[in-house]
Design a protein around this nucleic acid. Structure first.
Lengths: 212, 212
DNA sequence: CGGCATGTTGAAACGTTTCAACGAGAGTGG
DNA sequence: CCACTCTCGTTGAAACGTTTCAACATGCCG
């Protein structure tokens, strides 16, 4: 634990802060994978765009999470700033060098990849068999698990409805309807565009698990 | 490259062969993650089962692929033998020990995780926005890419229709209809239950990318 | 050759998407 | 500070694709 902090700060040392504006592209699919990043502030979305213009968001990254660690030479997805983003950028090579001296940094990368994989498998499970309402419920539940807001049961999402829809594999309209349905059932409240209050956590869980 | 082989054989040394019969469970979600495995022969499916009884297959593993490397203490999915399976089983601890001595084995794990992650993201992209026919086409295309059969453009899948459906996030019937549609278009042939011949690779690609 | 699991097809029910219109909120300039 | 505008979010109705339920075909094994 203690040592991990030492290592972390070493990693932080080699990185430089970079800023990105709302919707700015951090890197594109196919670019040479020169850097990996750690979110300091804001949110980043990892997505793929298809021939038909539709977009699938593969993952979101919130403060303290790392993204852009690729094993291949090129980035396999596109990363964009959801809102304004502050991030730490580390050259790939530096990481490789650090890894040699301190094999435990390899453990960190492993842990990070492992976490991404678990998230991706969860995502697959969701897209594979859940209804629109269940997806929205699962999504909020997952956010609640790693809530960043101090206020109990309040989610401050920097995401637009379109972002949510693209993550859930739904249209914006369907997402909206599912949201409205949850509001009608008094399971959530939406006091403002980007704020969700969970009024009935158990109810939300029941829905996420196919209880309605 | 050459060194990789050395390492590989070292890894093989600490493992023991184990056999599993058709549909046998190799490990269940929640079990203590004691071992990781490498497929020698046959195919393994990694899946999650839901409260409603439905199943989502998250990944398949074919000969030479490794699975069961978890960072957490428990397996997060269930692994089952699709047909008869021969596999190499390595205790988790041994791997950890090996890793210490030879940091490059860590690289192997990293590579393996990275590959799984790429596959999972591809899977998410598919489930998120492709139609039934597009999914089936993409699936065959992916299999063609890593074909194990010697015969050109012939896929020998050990999977049942149910397995395919559960991977594609569709019902068995929809999968079947999509298959029949592809047959009707003379893009594929299905000479036997578990054999698919691709007659028009370009056509298949076109469909997978939303060309029809 | 029967019997049983697996695969295939059809028709109605269901949920999501599409297209279209409307509402609400945030930011700008008067 | 209000009004305007523009983007974003919400709702409705018809079209579409997938699922469901049911029947039937096929192939495999004893």
């Amino acid at each position: 634990m203690e040592e991990a902090c030492v290592r972390k700060s070493e990693m932080d040392k080699v990185g430089v802060s970079v800023k990105f504006g709302r919707n700015e592209t951090i890197y594109s699919k196919g670019d040479e994978a020169r850097y990996s990043y750690k979110v300091i502030e804001g949110a980043v979305r990892l997505s793929r765009i298809f021939a038909d213009g539709r977009r699938q968001i593969v993952n979101f990254f919130l403060p303290d999470e790392t993204f852009g660690i690729e094993l291949s030479e090129e980035y396999t997805s596109t990363a964009e700033a959801v809102g304004d983003v502050l991030a730490l950028r580390c050259p790939r090579l530096c990481i490789a060098q650090l890894t040699e001296g301190h094999p435990d940094i390899g453990q960190k990368r492993l842990a990070m990849l492992s976490k991404s994989l678990a998230a991706a498998e969860q995502h697959v499970a969701m897209l594979g068999h859940q209804s629109a309402k269940e997806r929205v419920a699962s999504f909020f539940l997952a956010l609640e698990m790693q809530r960043r807001t101090e206020i109990e049961r309040t989610l401050d999402l920097p995401l637009s409805r379109q972002d949510i829809a693209d993550y859930l594999g739904l249209t914006i309209e369907t997402t909206c309807r599912a949201l409205s349905e949850l509001k009608r059932q008094r399971i959530i409240e939406a006091p403002s565009r980007r704020r969700i209050v969970i009024r009935d956590l158990a109810g939300l869980q029941a829905i996420a698990e196919g209880g309605a």
